[in-house]
Design a protein around this nucleic acid. Structure first.
Lengths: 232, 232
DNA sequence: GAGTGGTCTAGACCACGGG
DNA sequence: CCGTGGTCTAGACCACTCG
């Protein structure tokens, strides 16, 4: 488990140790790369690799000329892996299924068109699907797809493959928003998810873009008991 | 905005372009580093930097000898910044306050001791606090601190500084778990958060460790309307 | 202006792991 | 075995930004 002496991981661990040991307290400046390299007996590039890793993790603040400082408030970052629902379910050892509940091209609500920065009369494909895990409802998906950006979706076999999965394979995106909140189940949602009306549900909102072109807006309502886990 | 030609960012962008353009479709192998370096006219280390960046982002799968492949299912990662609550509130332009509701050393529930992998009779400090934003309830915090690992907390002025902030400054951690779920407000919680009983609340569970030593377990209940946002 | 991090190069050796 | 990625080195130049 211990990194090879002289490796950048070893340097990283040693720097971390000194920070935790308060040798280098929060807010203080640490020696520059050249000095550290000499004192550790490695090349500067190796020190650079270690410090960049720590900076990326938010442990250090680095600025040219100003030098490297221990972050005053180490803003912790958690990385959330967002799997395809099918994979998530199957990874839990349960059979997955997806049922297409609705599909139409009705005009989208303002919330959606505004989030996608599209005119309110833009032609959007509307989909509603229920994801099942082991026969039980897992999540309810409400989706709007920008048909202008992904015309092929109009002829996609969405009763065979979930829109989620089809889009991942056919419409790569470059950026997006992702947010999590809690919502009480409406009577309709409760019926679809086989839970009590008013039950607390995890609500995930996602918008994706390919460059400047909006691709899709989706709202996922997870069945009660759902929990998103990450490591710190 | 465009990266300098020959920089690793430029290589990264070009590789990304070829992936999006389906020159290198999902699952396919791409040339090895040496070949790419030659064709791009840069050193192998530069190509390595670019490909490592893409691998870290989940776009590429890299294995020694097996080479580099375009990830079949680009598992998207969202990085969530976990700020100190006070900062989060103040960043929203609202005055922050924290009220300590309870503090005792009663035995902890099994859920807590098990999550911390401690014997069920381990001495834990129990805290309950209400975080306020602009005078309105923002989040309810239920916390258990491993007094054995952080004895100084027993004499910390927790009516002045939130336990959250005190721990960040005085008890660095090396790893932790983080999970998000939704919960209906109990009558007690509703009273504290000034909302309706049964309201859907975002529940955050966090456990932190310093090496093998458990530090703290905390449950945060956010007031209705709370939303965690991240970029993809 | 000058110090510091950011990056590139050319070359080398190593570790992993597929065939 | 041996090809591929992972990493280290020594040296160099650049870019940013603080003073």
């Amino acid at each position: 488990m211990t990194a090879r002496p002289g490796s950048w991981q070893a340097i990283e661990a040693e720097v971390l140790r000194r920070i935790h040991a308060r040798d280098w307290p929060p807010g203080s400046a640490i020696p520059n790369e050249a000095d550290l390299a000499q004192s550790f007996g490695v090349a500067r590039a190796t020190v650079n690799r270690a410090l960049q890793s720590l900076a990326e993790a938010g442990i250090l603040d680095r600025r040219r000329k100003a030098g490297t400082r221990v972050a005053l408030h180490p803003v912790r970052r958690a990385t959330l892996r967002i799997p395809i629902l099918r994979h998530e379910v199957e990874a839990a050892g349960q059979p997955y299924a997806c049922r297409l509940l609705a599909r139409d091209e009705a005009p989208a609500p303002e919330v959606v068109t505004q989030a996608l920065r599209l005119p309110s009369d833009a032609p959007l494909l509307h989909l509603r699907a229920l994801h099942l895990a082991g026969g039980a409802p897992h999540a309810l998906e409400e989706r709007w797809v920008n048909a202008a950006a992904v015309p092929a979706i109009l002829s996609a076999p969405l009763d065979t493959i979930s829109a989620n999965e089809w889009l991942v394979a056919n419409a790569p995106f470059t950026s997006g928003d992702f947010s999590i909140a809690a919502a009480n189940a409406t009577t309709d949602e409760a019926a679809a998810l086989a839970c009590q009306p008013g039950a607390a549900l995890v609500e995930v909102l996602r918008t994706t873009w390919d460059g400047a072109r909006p691709i899709t807006w989706v709202r996922l309502l997870h069945a009660p008991g759902y929990r998103m886990r990450m490591a710190l």
